[in-house]
């Protein structure tokens, strides 16, 4: 019950933050030099009156605060405006692109968490033994190598040289041919994973390395806690101590880290999508910035901000759920 109240409270708190973000984004985008209508019509003979018509059509002739208000109210009613470049509603343009990004980011995260936590625990358990040293070197490499570089290397080795994986594009799980039977669906999923593998590793390595390092440190710390000593003194087995007593306490900082990792992952997704030629939100953002496609840039950036803020909130709630010491910020 308290947790539910806390959840609502945290979401309510997020509203002003998101509003602030949209204002800043809006001002930024509208203050950058370059006129979208001129870019759109570059190289064509266009009359002044037609330019004025285009400005009016895309709403660029009205004062900035009116345009902001339009944008904001549109956002809540699902009308994100029209893309100048694609000449289609922004919502349509984005819907086509959000799938690949979510698939990429979530699978990279899953990969990171699923590998990093056991490896971190193992490293803590075998502290200062060879396997610990190896994992630390790998982690150091992981945190200090940019994801796009890892992506390029993966492409060169596993796509170009060995030809094991495709070098570009993603296949969406829900894009299976409609007449596919069970086995057809199976092979479709194999294809999905086949495409996903390299970009997932490229994007997930940084997360994996960061989580693993923190997991290791936290586990080492936790294993030295008095409560672990007490558990040992009462005959609890090392296995249970590792999996339960030390583990639960050690996860608290890891949860925060995973949440914050979402922002770096979203940033990394932009580059990974470029390297692997994936038609996701990241590439849409970059293309739209180049095209001065205000409406799209604004909407994509807002969506990314929303995803990020939601990620942070979920992190906080997860933390509050796991750590009973968290006070619920209600001034009790």
């Amino acid at each position: 019950m308290r947790l539910l109240r806390y959840t609502l409270f945290r979401f309510a708190q997020a509203i002003p933050v998101l509003l602030g973000i949209t204002v800043i984004l809006f001002l930024f985008i509208n203050m950058t030099p370059g006129d979208p209508i001129r870019i759109m019509t570059a190289g064509q003979e266009v009359s002044e009156s037609h330019l004025a018509y285009l400005e009016a059509r895309y709403g660029l002739d009205r004062p900035i605060h009116v345009r902001y208000w339009d944008y904001l109210s549109g956002f809540f009613t699902g009308d994100l405006g029209r893309s100048i470049h694609y000449n289609r509603p922004v919502s349509e343009v984005m819907m086509a692109r959000i799938g690949p990004t979510l698939l990429l980011v979530l699978s990279a995260f899953l990969f990171a968490v699923v590998t990093a936590i056991p490896l971190g625990i193992l490293a803590a358990k075998r502290r200062n033994q060879p396997s610990d040293h190896i994992s630390r070197i790998v982690a150091l490499f992981g945190v200090s190598t940019p994801s796009f570089w890892i992506g390029i290397m993966l492409i060169i080795i596993f796509a170009v040289q060995l030809g094991w994986f495709p070098s570009a594009g993603l296949v969406m799980p829900w894009d299976a041919p409609s007449d596919a039977g069970l086995s057809g669906y199976f092979w479709h999923m194999v294809d999905v994973l086949h495409h996903l593998f390299l970009p997932m590793i490229a994007l997930g390595t940084l997360q994996m390395a960061t989580i693993m390092r923190v997991e290791r440190t936290q586990m080492i710390d936790s294993l030295q806690g008095e409560y672990v000593k007490l558990a040992r003194a009462y005959g609890v087995s090392e296995r249970t101590i590792l999996r339960k007593h030390a583990f639960q306490v050690a996860q608290l900082p890891v949860i925060t880290l995973v949440g914050l990792g979402l922002s770096t992952a979203l940033g990394g997704a932009v580059l990974t999508e470029t390297v692997f030629n994936i038609n996701g939100m990241g590439r849409l953002l970059i293309d739209s910035i180049q095209q001065k496609d205000y409406q799209v840039v604004m909407s994509v950036a807002t969506i990314l901000a929303v995803i990020f803020v939601i990620g942070v909130i979920i992190t906080d709630i997860a933390y509050a759920y796991v750590d009973p010491r968290v006070t619920y910020g209600e001034g009790e």
Binding site: E226, Y227, K229, L230, Y234, G235, Q248, R325
Partner: peptide
């Protein structure tokens, strides 16, 4: 571990703040 610790010889530590698992 199984037959002595806890059931034959139990302990109480100095720091009651740290001896109990916070979670």
């Amino acid at each position: 571990r199984q037959e002595i610790r806890g059931n034959e010889i139990a302990v109480i530590f100095q720091d009651p703040m740290e001896s109990l698992n916070p979670v």
